[in-house]
Amino acid sequence: MIERMPDRGGPQQPLLIARGLTKHFPLSKSLMRRREVVQAVDNIDFSVMKGETLGIVGESGCGKSTASRLIMQLIEPTSGEVIFDGESIGRSGLSLKKYRRQVQMVFQDSYSSLNPRLTIEESISYAPMVHGVPKSKAISRTHELLEAVGLAPSQYARRYPHELSGGQRQRINIARALALHPRLIVLDEPVSALDKSVEAQVLNLLIDLKKQFDLTYIFISHDLNVVEHVADRVLVMYLGKIAEIGPVDSLFSDPAHPYTQALLDSRPSMDPSRRRTEPPLFGDPPNPINPPSGCRFRTRCRKAWGLCAEQPPPFHQIKPNHSASCHAVALEAERVSE
């Protein structure tokens, strides 16, 4: 039977560190112009502590999905590295096979991420069997997992993906992710395709499983409400860069970066007597092919001034663990300290 990999560095050592992670996708070569690249993820640093849920939010093109694929090592980074529990992943450090046993992923599209020709039981027990678990043990583990995600094995084990609803399929994907006793699960928009009532069921389940199996989550979503509900810390991305990172309470109650403020203000009011009158931001996020110079948010930012076009803003710590990459924030802090 596969056992969970042991903890190495103790609770203080981050489970995962992304260091200078960068992914540039080259566009097809052009005869007369220089090569263009999409700067999907550009030099981002963050860490995920053991047992926490790190939420990653941002709009389309911000690089959150690319970041998740880099973390999973599904694509090769242009530069930078991922360190898992103190070990660098790749040639010298942790082997990919060992890493992938400890890190699993759940995708948004519950249907296309399951093999339509395999039964639920076969899908979930596949990976353990590849890792050498005898069939009978893998099957009994599968039934335990189905139980854990709230699907009666007697009723569902032999069914095929198309016979299930979206919510049930997402439960299967979660069960499959748990099959190898992972320590970290990357959830890429896991509830975005679900109806609200089903979304609530799956969110409750994810919170329960985290406790039950002692997991760490990276939770990627475009829905701020969902991230606020599940995450301990939140990372806000804009055009391939980190705009702000901080504990969920601090970031949601006191957002520092103008982009985070705008994102929060863009949420519907839920109160018809206090409707929004002005949109917090105008326009769409720009194209990541040619991102603006300096601060990438400056083209939509009300606070932008000359410096913002010249230099990329440094990270400025506002509170413990809470920092933002914004010239205005840094200037403000300087003024206060003087």
């Binding site: 609200k196 009532s197 609530a200 839920m270």
Partner: peptide, 29 residues
């Protein structure tokens, strides 16, 4: 929004994640 009456409507509103649901268990249908 303030006072839904039908059990489905109240269930749906209860299941909708919004500011302030953090730390609570979402009601589900």
């Amino acid at each position: 929004i303030r006072s839904p009456r039908h059990p489905y409507t109240s269930g749906l509103l209860g299941a909708t994640v919004h500011a302030g649901t953090r730390g609570t268990r979402l009601t589900t249908i």
